[in-house]
Each structure stands twice: as structure tokens, then as C-alpha cells.
Design a protein around this nucleic acid. Structure first.
Lengths: 250, 250
DNA sequence: CCAAAAGTGTTGGGCCTACACCCATGG
DNA sequence: CCATGGGTGTAGGCCCAACACTTTTGG
């Protein structure tokens, strides 16, 4: 213990062999909105422990890459999407999970990331790529390790970020209707929003969305065709778009 | 590379010796409000690299503790405060910094924490404890490693959290005046707030503060004695206490 | 008496909720 | 022609920024 104290990178002597060895991994909480419900990308474990249980995709951080790069690489591998596609996706560090007992085999510190993707085609199992599949959020059994907690933290985070960032557009394709955007909010928050007020709010927030010139599209066949919009240049929402009753709807 | 892929904890074979070795540390961004200005706890490095430069306090995570426990332990060691005192302090995980080149000696992944402390006595250099000292935020030179960025991220985070949490009371002693609480906001945000409106806002937010029965105290000698308050049971502010002009004042 | 800080009151305007109402399309 | 969803308008109310004013202390 004293050896480690003395080896602190802030002061004292330094011995490269004195540090306690850790494995560092990334875990991914990847969300999408499909069929009007929130879905999450999960894999099925083939090995003990937790064999047969669902888990978040993830893997080791390599010696020459940052955790963020590792997360993007794993995302590409698990979804089977091209590197060009995944490079544009929204990926955000959530937090780091470091309980000594979180992995029964050894000491693993995991940096969790949250990714939001539009309704992409089903992840292909092409080549080496994974058996990852979309499952409704909450409609899966208990997950392996501490992944239930990671997933819950991720859900809470994106719910909060929808309030004061333009993040919702990350769930939508390049061009989308305001109805689709509203459905993102309703699905993640689990509430219904007033359509006219939502529209005004979004359109009066500078840089949130911008109209597409000629476009008009039908969402589900019925009703008046809706105008199309693109994501705007803004990152933050001023003022924020708060969910109805105070906080949370867990 | 393939060996590491196959060793991923989500699938495939698993070899405990195949994982890339990392050192895991914690770094602490400890803030206080002293003399009406925001100050941060820094140490001076005695070793290369960055010998003589200022840095954030921190150290290795031990094999049998979580990063959070390591952060609290380091905080106690650096400030010289008793374990009972530090156990009550607000400590929050900021984010993890994992750039491969962030430490020139070896691969170090650091989990950064932010701590908010009231105006405690100068950290004693007692016993083994550190040469840590308070310095005005921004009034120090460039820091070692990527600590400038960590510190900037921490400042942004606490500024944002003041808006929608009761965090500001963590900067105050057990009993405080509304003037002291307002000074916390003004100091961290770098703006002036309207006193009457601030008072109303705080008092009408349920659970933010509660009045101390008989108390009344003078802040700086001059003026009418102010009533004393304690931190209330609430954690979040509804509605939030937004800073004046949109975002940021960097 | 004056300066400084605490505390109370008031008012005008902005924003937002909650509706009512038209428009365009598919069946 | 009716159900469905897009889009516009409007009235009421709540909240809040701004500022005037009183109170209580130290010098």
C-alpha cells in the first residue's frame, strides 16, 4: 500500500512495475427508436460467467487507443455498420464503473458510453461481426455483471439530455418530420406531448432544426403530409424543453 | 489485436493474461470559495515529468477499492482532514481521461472526481500529508499532464450543476446566510445576481434550505444581521435556478 | 447621519399550457 | 365523408426580472 502511495503520479518515487494491474474495457449502451418504442442493442453471452444472459456490447481498450476510440471501434464491430457511418454517430462517455467485484474473474474497470442511432437496418451478423440484436428497453431479463445499472444510468442520462440539448435529432434519419422528432421525446420520456406547443418550441429554438426546401413526407400513410427538417447547427437548447411533470418517469 | 478482441468479456475465449495492462488512477478537482473567489486545491510536483509544475492531487486506485473509495481516501490524505469530515463531503465522478499519450511514462487511465468543500482551514502538512494548497482558479500557471482540461471540465460541470441541484450548500458551512449562498453562485458563475429575487427563489424551492431557529449572524460586520439557514433535504431544484444570460461565462 | 447589507413589495412583460380550429390525405 | 395527423391561432395564467422601499447594523 505504501508502495502504491509512493508511486502516485503526483509525487514521490516512481516504479513502473509497482502499479496494480487492471484491465480496462468499454461498455456500450446503444439506443434507438423503432416501431414507436425505445430499443437497446444487446448481445448474448456465450461464456461463463453469466453464460446465456444478455449483456451490453463492449470489449477491451487496446494499448494504443483511447477509451473513446475503443468505444467507436466496438460500436462498428457490433453493429456491422461501415466506419464512415459510425464515425458520424453520437457517442458520449457516460461514467466509469470500478467496483472491485463487478467481474468475478478479475479486476476490470469499465468506461461506459452511450450511443444514439437512428432506425438503422438490423445489425448484420456479417463476417466476424456480432450476434447483437435490438431489444425493447425494459423488455429483456436481468443483464450480466452490473449492466442493468449501467443501462439505467444511460437511460436517465439521455432523458435528461433531451431537455437541454439537440440530442433528439441523433435518433432521427438525416431528414425527418416534426412528428418523428416528437415521437423520440415521447418514447424516451414515456409521456405524451402537446403537438402544437412542441412544434412551436422546436421551431423557435434557433439552430435546432432547419427546413428542407421542397420536401414533404408521410409518416404512416394517414394524415396530411409533413414538412421535412434537418438537424440544425446548435448543440444546446435555449431555453430548455422540459418534460411535463417535474423530473423522471421511471 | 485479435487476441484482445477474442478476450473481450462479452464473447469468445478468455485468457486472463491476454488483457493489455493499464494503471488506473484518480485525479481530484477540489473547489472551495475563500475570500470571495473560487479556489482549487493543487500540489507541486517533485519529480519529472512536469517537475515543479502544479497538478491536481490524486493517486493510484488500490486493488481492492473502487475508484470512488480511492478518491475519498486521496482527498483525506491531501487535505489532512479527518476521515469523518471527508466522509460527509460531496464527491462526484467527473469523467475518465484515457488518451494514450496523457502520461509520457506509461499507459495511465485516470478517473477524475470533483469535490466541493466549505472554507476549511488551510490543509495541514501534518504527518505524511501533502503539500497541497489552495490557489485561485485561473490564477495558477499551466498544470501538468492534461490537468488543465480536467480542471476546466470540472468547473463547467459544477457551474451547470448549481443550476438544477442543491450543490451550492456543499460550499457553505453547516449554518450559513443567504448572502453567503448567493456569493457561491456569483463566484462560480462570475456574475452578479439580484438579491431580492435570489432570496425568493431559494426560499420558495421546497427542501433547498431550512431556517435555523434562533440564529442571526453578521457576514462582514456591516449591515443588518442575516438569518441563518441549514441545507435542506432536497437534492434537485424545481424549477432550476438558471444563470442570467444563456450559457457559460468562461 | 451615512454606508452597507438584509429583507419586503409591486409591477410589467414574456413565455408557456391548454385548447379550439383549419388543412390535407388515405380509406 | 370520416379518421388521422400536420399546422395555425389565441386566451389565460404563472413566473420572473427589475426596481423601489424599509430595516438594522457599524463607523
Amino acid at each position: 500500500m505504501d508502495a502504491y502511495d509512493a508511486g502516485g503520479h503526483d509525487a514521490g518515487d516512481y516504479d513502473p512495475r509497482a502499479f496494480p494491474p487492471f484491465a480496462v474495457t468499454v461498455d456500450l449502451a446503444v439506443f434507438t427508436v423503432r416501431d414507436g418504442e425505445l430499443q437497446v442493442l444487446l448481445i448474448e453471452r456465450g461464456q461463463e460467467p453469466y453464460k446465456g444472459a444478455r449483456a451490453l456490447p463492449g470489449g477491451f481498450v487496446l494499448p494504443d487507443e483511447s477509451a473513446g476510440r475503443a468505444a467507436r471501434r466496438e460500436l462498428a464491430e457490433e453493429t456491422g455498420l461501415s466506419a464512415r457511418t459510425t464515425a458520424a454517430l453520437h457517442l458520449e462517455q457516460l461514467r466509469t464503473y470500478s467496483d472491485p467485484d463487478r467481474d468475478p474473474r478479475m479486476r476490470v474497470v469499465s468506461v461506459a458510453y452511450t450511443a444514439l442511432v437512428p432506425d438503422v437496418p438490423e445489425p448484420r451478423g456479417g463476417g466476424d461481426a456480432a450476434h447483437a440484436q435490438w431489444m425493447p428497453y425494459g423488455g429483456h431479463g436481468p443483464l450480466a455483471f452490473d449492466h442493468d445499472r449501467i443501462l439505467a444510468d444511460a437511460h436517465e442520462r439521455i432523458g435528461a439530455k433531451l431537455e437541454y440539448t439537440c440530442l433528439a435529432t441523433a435518433f432521427c434519419p438525416a431528414e425527418f418530420t416534426l412528428g418523428e422528432l416528437r415521437q423520440v421525446y415521447e418514447t424516451v420520456w414515456g409521456v405524451e406531448l402537446d403537438r402544437p406547443n412542441f412544434r412551436r418550441k422546436v421551431l423557435t429554438t434557433p439552430g435546432f432544426v432547419e427546413a428542407v426546401a421542397g420536401g414533404a413526407r408521410l409518416t404512416s400513410g394517414r394524415g396530411k403530409p409533413a414538412a421535412l427538417y434537418r438537424a440544425g447547427p446548435a448543440n444546446a437548447l435555449h431555453p430548455p424543453l422540459l418534460r411535463p411533470e417535474g423530473r423522471h418517469t421511471p
